[in-house]
Design a protein around this nucleic acid. Structure first.
Lengths: 154, 154
DNA sequence: CACAATGCGACCCATCAGGTAGTATTACTG
DNA sequence: CAGTAATACTACCTGATGGGTCGCATTGTG
């Protein structure tokens, strides 16, 4: 489930729009600057988000982008799937974009990958943009703690 | 955590070796045929596995590959990390191969990605090749069931 | 009309996964 | 000791894809 830059950038922009919901349209240039995304590249991504109905654009002076859908109605899973295809670690255990594999009848590790897929999918499909918006930012040393835990015993 | 083909192939070969542990060496050709992997490509992968100390090779006639380490001492996490770098969906929440991101102080969705990383990492780091070997193969309609569940409510 | 924004197709470029080839080396076997 | 079946190793090829840029058309506002 490695996120592509596209997905990363899309999420950055989306959350900026979620944050400024109700306000005036935000131009791409602003979105790009704020989120450290190449403007030209972001154009394509925004277009994509628009087609999906997640954002709306207004052209011309004072134009820009706005969120077009209730952030409680957009899940992380949907966004990631739209850009990256699926959440599963391998296509043969994907539910939404399943692809058959020749080894299925004998493959041993397919089960653990399926489990991984389920863990991630359940999380991502339950989590809406609104949920994410409410959750606190990861603190600088939070990772260090995990590093410690992971090191021992697990 | 999209698995690369390399990792997939490596796992296929590894589990064949786990299965035939204690027996005579299995030549690459055999490993390739059995697991539907291009032989020439598998060579590279086996070499890599050997460097890692997971398998041992014997050259010459009647040669081939054997598992070189107790399958209870090799985790899925190790294997995947070796080939794909990290288990996290994004480098800024990777524990083993962390890379800084400019947006960390403000990024909203970093937390949910960290959660996903933890779910997957905990699973993969606890699961050894021996564990996987013991688990039953995924049945044909198991996925369909999940499809049903995922469709409703989640 | 000028200006400020998006829309959009075309294109570029580096990287990498996947795969191929050739030759050297090793070791068993008759 | 020759033959042969295997790995060892280095180098290379190729197509897809991801990331990113460009130019120009279009739309809307003051």
């Amino acid at each position: 489930m490695q996120l592509s830059m596209r997905t990363d950038y899309a999420l950055r922009a989306l959350f900026t729009l979620v944050e400024h919901r109700g306000g005036p349209p935000i131009p791409i240039l602003e979105l790009a600057r704020r989120n450290d995304v190449p403007k030209r590249f972001l154009e394509h991504i925004m277009l994509d988000l628009k087609e999906k109905g997640w954002v709306a654009s207004t052209a011309g002076k004072r134009g820009g982008y706005q969120l077009a859908k209730n952030p409680e109605k957009i899940t992380m899973g949907e966004v990631v799937r739209h850009f990256d295809g699926y959440l599963a670690p391998i296509a043969c255990v994907s539910v939404t974009d399943y692809k058959r594999c020749t080894q299925e009848t004998t493959c041993r590790f397919r089960r653990v990958l399926l489990t991984a897929r389920n863990l991630v999918a359940n999380l991502m499909d339950r989590t809406t943009l609104a949920d994410v918006m409410k959750s606190p930012v990861v603190s600088p040393d939070e990772l260090r703690k995990i590093q410690g835990i992971d090191g021992e015993g697990i």
